[in-house]
């Protein structure tokens, strides 16, 4: 009979427990020790996770007797454990797939990866360090879908201050369809304005709620509005750009 609780002279598990404890000790020592061996660096993550799984299995199998106890206990524990592992993987997957909007550094890295930009200095957004020619080349090559997506984002997030046609609103957002810009009309400057917002105005830092691609798409759309000079648009604010 394999049930751990038996009446009378139950046989001792002490030997098994001591062996299990010894293996757990050795594995923990290996885990910590491996951190200090530079050569192991490439294989470290899978090795560490593997050792943790073995330790986990040893404790539930030997100490908690899941190995040879009634199947109902295994079922009650392993099914939620599998669900927990799956939801963990799902969360990790989401964190990777969606460029998280929580950090400007991350956004810039994502954009850099997407289009090969040199990252701007995040501490001094007023002076964009992006090579404008590369940005312009990327803009010129951008396909229509990016602009369409940008238009949808503009309609959802920007029109309350910049008006549905981009003509701007008194006391709120400037006209996007003339060739005047308060914070610079270069693509890099415009991206920074969208990303970091303008302190003291209604313009929020959109990096807090948009992904890098979304900010890029809306940037392309806004850039495409330049020079359309819609009827009833706000008068020029800031300085006019030559182009």
């Amino acid at each position: 009979m394999s049930h751990p609780i038996e009446h009378g002279e139950a046989h001792s598990h002490v030997g098994l427990y001591l062996k299990t404890g010894a293996v757990l000790t050795v594995l923990t020592a290996l885990e910590v020790g491996a951190l200090f061996v530079p050569d192991l660096k490439p294989v470290l993550p899978p090795a560490l996770i593997g050792m943790a799984v073995i330790k986990f299995a040893l404790v539930i199998g030997m100490f908690m007797h899941l190995r040879d106890d009634k199947p109902i206990f295994r079922f009650l524990f392993m099914v939620p454990l599998a669900l927990a592992v799956l939801s963990f993987i799902a969360m990790a997957f989401l964190a990777i797939v969606h460029y998280e909007p929580f950090g400007i550094g991350y956004v810039v890295t994502a954009l850099q990866k997407a289009e090969g930009f040199v990252p701007p200095s995040t501490t001094a957004p007023a002076e964009p360090a992006w090579p404008e020619d590369k940005l312009l080349a990327a803009y010129a090559e951008s396909d229509k879908t990016a602009h369409e997506k940008g238009k949808a984002i503009f309609a959802a997030s920007c029109v309350s201050c910049h008006r549905a046609d981009g003509g701007g609103m008194p006391g709120l957002g400037p006209n996007m369809t003339d060739n005047c810009y308060k914070h610079g009309g270069k693509l890099g400057e415009m991206y920074n304005t969208i990303s970091t917002g303008v302190a003291g105005t209604a313009m929020p830092p959109w990096s807090a709620s948009m992904k890098a691609e979304q900010m890029r798409d809306v940037l392309y759309y806004v850039r495409s509005l330049r020079g359309q000079n819609v009827a009833g648009g706000k008068a020029c604010e800031g300085s006019a750009v030559a182009e």
Binding site: P4, I5, H13, L24, M62
Partner: peptide, 15 residues
């Protein structure tokens, strides 16, 4: 980790 070992030994002793 070692407290898990002592716990298992405690249960075993009671059995």
């Amino acid at each position: 980790l070692m407290s898990s070992l002592t716990m298992a030994l405690g249960v075993d002793a009671m059995r």
